[in-house]
C-alpha cells in the first residue's frame, strides 16, 4: 500500500463522528466610513494613503520622490510617460533593481488595510515584492469593511496566484524592534482614486 493510501485509511478509521460546518453569518464589522478605517489602519502599520482624482497627481508624487535615474515600473498605461511598462514578459530576476513599482489592486479591506491583488494585475508574481518601494492604485469605491465581505466578492474567482498585501514588508525579529523593509518593499503608498 502506498503512503497515501495508508495515511488516508488510518485517517478514515480515526476521524471523529461527522460534525457540521458552522455558517459565517454575523461575522465582521461594518464600518461607517471604510475609507477612514482603512487609512487609520494602514498608517498604523507604516503605510500611507494619498487620495487623488487625476493621474498627474501620481506623476507629481513620483517626480518629487525619485530622481531621474531611478528605475520605475508600472502596469498602468496611464503612467506610460513616467514608468516602464514593457517588463511584464521578462525574466522576473530582471526586476531586481527596480526602485518603485506602481500597480493596481482589486479591493481593499477596511478592518486590516489588506489589498487583494491577483496575478492578472501583478503581471509578474514577484512585482509586488521585489521593488524597493511599492504603490498600489485602488478605487475608493472598491473598499469593503471586512475580510468576510472581501471573500464573498472574490468568490470562486480563478487565479494562479493572489495575495492580500497590507503595508510595507517588516520584521521585529531582533529584540521585538520594528524595522520596515525586511525582504519586500520598504514602503507602501496607496493611491486612492476618488
Amino acid at each position: 500500500m502506498s503512503s497515501r493510501d495508508k495515511i488516508l485509511a488510518k485517517i478514515a478509521q480515526n476521524q471523529p463522528e461527522f460534525s457540521a460546518l458552522p455558517d459565517l453569518k454575523g461575522l465582521g464589522n461594518v464600518y461607517e466610513s471604510p475609507a477612514q478605517q482603512f487609512k487609520t489602519i494602514l498608517e498604523g502599520i507604516g503605510g500611507k494613503v494619498i487620495e487623488f482624482s487625476d493621474w498627474s497627481e501620481i506623476k507629481a508624487f513620483v517626480h518629487e520622490h525619485f530622481d531621474s535615474n531611478a528605475r520605475i515600473t508600472s502596469t498602468l498605461p496611464e503612467l506610460a510617460d513616467i514608468a516602464e511598462l514593457d517588463w511584464v514578459d521578462n525574466d522576473p530576476h530582471t526586476l531586481e533593481n527596480v526602485d518603485f513599482t506602481i500597480i493596481r489592486g482589486h479591493l481593499g479591506v477596511a478592518e486590516n488595510s489588506a489589498i487583494w491583488i491577483t496575478e492578472s494585475l501583478l503581471k509578474q508574481r514577484v512585482s509586488a515584492f521585489i521593488p524597493q518601494y511599492l504603490a498600489i492604485v485602488l478605487e475608493a469605491n472598491s473598499l469593503v469593511s471586512s475580510m468576510h465581505e472581501a471573500y464573498t466578492q472574490i468568490g470562486m474567482e480563478e487565479y494562479g496566484f493572489a495575495t492580500f498585501l497590507a503595508g510595507p514588508s517588516k520584521t521585529a525579529d531582533i529584540e521585538q524592534s520594528l524595522v520596515l523593509g525586511a525582504h519586500g518593499a520598504r514602503g507602501l503608498t496607496v493611491f486612492l482614486k476618488v
Partner: peptide
C-alpha cells in the same frame, strides 16, 4: 497585527 503583511494564495 490586524493581518500579516503578505497572505499569499
Amino acid at each position: 497585527q490586524p493581518i500579516t503583511t503578505y497572505s499569499s494564495h
